[in-house]
Design a protein around this nucleic acid. Sequence first.
DNA 1: TTGTTAGTTTGCAAAATGTCGAAGTATCAA
DNA 2: TTGATACTTCGACATTTTGCAAACTAACAA
Lengths: 103, 103
Amino acid sequence: MSKIDVAKMSKVFRALSNKNRLQLFLNLLDESRLDLAKGRTHDCFLTNIISNLRIGAPSISHHVRELEAAGLIETTKEGKQLVCSIRPEAMDDIAAFFSARSV
Amino acid sequence: MSKIDVAKMSKVFRALSNKNRLQLFLNLLDESRLDLAKGRTHDCFLTNIISNLRIGAPSISHHVRELEAAGLIETTKEGKQLVCSIRPEAMDDIAAFFSARSV
DNA sequence: TTGTTAGTTTGCAAAATGTCGAAGTATCAA
DNA sequence: TTGATACTTCGACATTTTGCAAACTAACAA
């Protein structure tokens, strides 16, 4: 199991501590579940996962970068559009840590 | 699986987003691992889990209440001392959230 | 009773965060 | 080339967060 340090972990939680940012991440997670379960990554256009957020484009842009800086997602450009994907390693690290049965 | 409440979950993440607060929680988690793995709770004196935090007593007091308000821990008084314990359900929620394999 | 320990409450200041409007860039379409 | 779409960057501003000092309370010891 890879070791996680407190500073890094707190950044992950910070990234998910804002309602809009969490919602954005959850939208992406919903889209990605099936692929993640199979051990694959899943690419998703940003436009498709921000429809239920009531904030402006600058804020969205800012939130995406926070999620990326925390290591939770990766992004690439595809033409005009931004493509997002969840980093499975980030999910795994934290899941392992908080699994009560992992002693 | 229970549906995720964004507002509630973001509060949990917010509680763990501060380095000192996370460290405090992790100290408690370290102490609690064995019991949690057996499905039990574990009581811990506050004094024992704050030794590596470089902040004053008022800040500690504040952080403990934040963790409690987020539903991550429970506290009781024992004489002069405060006793803390991790709420196992909170752990389960977090583990489930980050488990990519749970579809 | 007097002192000590363990934590709480209050009030305050510095720093970080979240959102926005305005302006800018890059891609693609007409 | 003109316009539209999909972001990004840059201040600015209000709100929240974090931590501290000072004063306070409750439990216990001497």
